[in-house]
């Protein structure tokens, strides 16, 4: 380290205090910036690479004429959602995974011992 010996412990402490805090902040700031701006960009780019008709989900806006959200509109939307969810069960995931139940061999539960040892 290039810090001369004449600098006391306390002075070095202040140096470490300032640089340390600066590095911690810059480190987490880098992370912040990356996840705030970098990641959405990367994901957008990645989605853009994928083939397919539409990859970007457009945000759904609920524009109501006259800017009023009446009970009728709410009822219409909830009816729509209800009907949609009602149809959901027809499109079930076709992939079935069955967890295999393994039976470990153990002499304690072995049929062989029980079956043969008692023969006369």
């Amino acid at each position: 380290m290039s810090i001369p010996l004449s600098i006391s412990n306390i002075d070095e402490g202040y140096v470490i205090l300032l640089t340390g805090l600066l590095i911690v902040f810059s480190g987490l700031l880098t992370l912040t910036v990356f996840f705030k701006y970098g990641l959405p960009f990367i994901l957008k780019f990645y989605n853009g690479l994928k083939p397919g008709p539409k990859n970007t989900n457009k945000e759904i806006t609920c524009k109501v004429p006259g800017n009023e959200f009446t009970g009728e509109v709410a009822a219409a939307i909830s009816m729509g959602i209800h009907l949609y969810l009602d149809e959901q069960h027809d499109n079930e995931n076709a992939v079935l995974t069955i967890k295999q139940a393994r039976k470990m061999y153990s002499p304690w539960s072995s049929k062989i011992y029980g079956a043969y040892n008692n023969r006369f």
Binding site: G13, L17, G20, G27, V33
Partner: peptide
Amino acid sequence: NPKLMLLGAAAQIGVFGTFLGALYLGFNL
């Protein structure tokens, strides 16, 4: 909410503050 990450950095002042306190109490670096 990435900006909350900065709060995690801010709390680290406790580390460096205590470090300085310990130096003042005569501990070595």
